[in-house]
Nucleic acid binder design. Structure first.
Length: 589
RNA sequence: GGAGGUGUGGUGUAGCCGGUUAACACGCGGCCCUGUCAAGGCCGAGAUCGCGGGUUCGAGCCCCGUCACUUCCGCCA
């Protein structure tokens, strides 16, 4: 046995015990005579003292070691001399007087410092991920992630849920995200796909009568990466039979409130969580995942603008569009260059421009000022609640463009001005999403959530006449500007499902090929069911204060979807390709 | 596919309006040191400034190209 105690557990109560510890040399302080070594294992730090007088052999070992050497130490737990305690350490009351020590392994000088949480180049961290994972920051994140997942499992187990694994090798469904494909050796020319989510399996489990299912499920999507998107990520996938939207929302809200209270009791959280319809959040925040930690809401001024002398405003309203504004606190002194940048941001979202009004001490400064009466300008200021020192930004355009442009500005400026309270967890529900989105390229309707989502019963009559107006029984959980989960009540009726597929321009033959198993399953007593899938990586990132989910994933990919440590992806031997009946066609240069 | 940012010893950064020997902290090596805990003191090694080209008497700095990383847009049923 290498150790009888961990480096995190010894206290004054253990004084006089003879113990064995093993771990890594976190830091060494060599006084010429005495040597102090902070020995680290996953459980903590313990100070080990090497005394040349009382234990010359151990001391000789102590003087050889360097940072990150693997060391085994035998010694006696001693109370530290009065005044020498270290209150920053759990084990700070004691130290271990080494009687013997053995170097279990040496270590090269690491490419970055392990014993400090200094910023290190991301590429280097990912290349030496096993060293990065030794650092306190990552150990904390991994521990938190473990606790979050453990809490979810226990909580759901107590409520009658069972965890069931679903296949990783499954079937491609070209609708939706790009699939990761796995060639089949036994069926030449055919492929498995890695699951984008266990969607169909969990629905089939409901048909199979399991009623309450969950899984900590890995999902894979071959799309470009973002700070909150990795090619493989983890969801708490759950599904229930005999439920309505309200049941799912209440269950998940209860779970997350309990979880936050247990694991992050200091975080500010308003309960119960506010609920918005999709139309409401788009109108108020210009986003379907608004950061509710700050205001700066989109305010409609179309009625004032309708009578404006400023033709851009007036014409936008007359054309059936909108004029809306946001009040940006303390930005009245923005320079021309900074204002141009804001206008450019609005343009990038499709707006023709943006009109600014700076509320300075000497009056209102606006490029459109000369086209407006003082009364009109005053009306805008009053409507937006502008104070001297604030900057008002208006966009006049079609409803959707106004919403997206101002929503983007709100998000950008909120981040830039640090308006969000870092300690807050602003959860909310967004419900009543539209059922379909128009796909311009393909000239067809796409499912906004996925094709198994049920329409609101009261909107079913619109399916044939006005699909764009149909609302879905789908819902998102948002927090601090992230989409943390989405879910829906599913279709369990064969005919309705077939009708939705048809609306999505999947003809009867392809329905049979792609989804025949689902349609048939619905004919064998499919219960009403629904569920949702909170993203574990995003949630843990928010909880740990990380702004990139890489920092809560042990072995993530870089933005090129490469694993810099393993060097994946990589080429493979020709005989492997031959077995899989594959030929490589390199892209032409 | 597109836009922005970054790239200077092992790590993190500074480097003025283009000017002579590229600075600082940490780390690393050596020596000294018996109560430190970010130990301390002294000494030392370590950089073709991502790469290629251009402008210039002179480029870490300006220009062009390129590569890598990163953030965002597109994309993510």
């Amino acid at each position: 046995m290498y150790k009888t105690k961990t480096c995190g557990e010894l206290t004054a109560q253990d004084v006089a015990q003879v113990v064995k510890l093993a771990g890594w040399v976190h830091r060494r302080r060599d006084h010429g005579g005495l040597i102090f070594i902070d020995l680290r294992d996953r459980f903590g730090l313990t100070q080990v003292v090497f005394n040349p007088q009382t234990a010359p052999e151990a001391h000789a070992v102590g003087s050889q070691v360097r940072n990150e050497y693997v060391l085994e130490v035998e010694g006696t737990v001693e109370k530290r001399p009065a005044g020498q305690e270290n209150p920053a350490l759990k084990t700070g009351e004691i130290e271990v007087y080494a009687s013997g020590a053995k170097i279990l392994n040496t270590a090269k000088v690491p490419p970055f410092v392990i014993n400090k949480n200094d910023d290190v180049d991301e590429t280097l961290r990912l290349t030496y991920r096993y060293l990065d994972l030794r650092r306190e920051r990552m150990q904390k994140n991994m521990m938190l992630r473990h606790r979050v997942v453990k809490f979810m499992r226990d909580w759901l187990d107590e409520r009658g849920f069972i965890e069931i694994e679903t296949p990783i090798l499954t079937k491609s469904t070209p609708e939706g995200a790009r699939d990761y494909l796995v060639p089949s050796r036994m069926s030449p020319g055919e492929f498995y796909a890695l699951p984008q989510s266990p969607q169909q399996f969990k629905q089939l489990l409901m048909i199979a009568g399991y009623e309450r299912y969950f899984q900590i499920a890995r999902c894979m999507r071959d799309e470009d990466l973002r700070a909150d998107r990795q090619p493989e990520f983890t969801q708490l996938d759950l599904e229930m039979a005999f439920v309505e939207q309200e049941d799912i929302l209440n269950l998940v809200e209860e779970l997350f409130i309990a979880l936050v209270k247990r694991l992050a009791p200091d975080r500010k959280m308003k309960t119960p969580w506010p609920r918005f319809t999709y139309d409401e959040v788009m109108a108020k925040y210009g986003s379907d995942k608004p950061d509710l930690r700050f205001g700066m809401e989109l305010t409609d001024v179309s009625d004032i603008a309708a009578a404006s002398g400023f033709s851009v405003f007036k014409n936008a309203v007359q054309a059936g569009g909108q004029v809306k504004g946001i009040c940006v606190p303390s930005c009245a002194e923005y320079t021309r260059r900074e204002l141009d940048e804001l206008i450019e941001m609005a343009r990038s979202k499709g707006a023709k421009g943006a009109v600014t009004m700076a509320l300075r001490a000497d009056g209102i400064h606006s490029p459109a000022g000369k086209f407006m009466t003082a009364e009109e300008q005053g009306a805008y200021v009053e409507r937006l609640g502008g104070q001297t020192g604030d900057l008002l930004v208006f966009v006049a355009d079609a409803r959707k463009i106004v919403s997206e442009a101002l929503g983007f500005l709100r998000r950008e400026l909120g981040a830039r001005l640090k308006l969000a309270d870092k300690n807050a967890l602003a959860f909310a529900w967004v419900v009543d999403f539209p059922m379909f989105e128009w796909n311009q390229e393909e000239e067809r309707w796409d499912a906004a959530h996925h094709p198994f989502t049920s329409p609101k019963p009261e909107d079913i009559h619109l399916l044939d006449t006005d699909p764009g107006a149909v609302r879905a029984n789908s819902y998102d959980m948002v927090c601090n500007g992230y989409e943390l989960a989405s879910g829906s009540i599913r279709i369990h009726d064969r005919e309705l499902q077939a009708k939705i597929f048809s609306l999505l321009k999947i003809d009867a033959e392809r329905q049979q090929i792609r989804f025949g198993h689902m349609l048939e399953a619905f004919e064998f007593g499919a219960p009403p069911h629904g569920g949702m899938a909170p993203g574990i990586d995003r949630f843990v990132a928010i909880l740990s204060g990380e702004d990139n989910i890489r920092d809560v994933i042990a072995f993530p990919k870089n933005q090129q979807a490469q694993d810099l440590m393993m060097h994946a992806p990589s080429d493979v031997d020709q005989d492997q390709l031959d077995l899989l009946h594959l030929q490589i066609v390199h892209p032409s240069a």
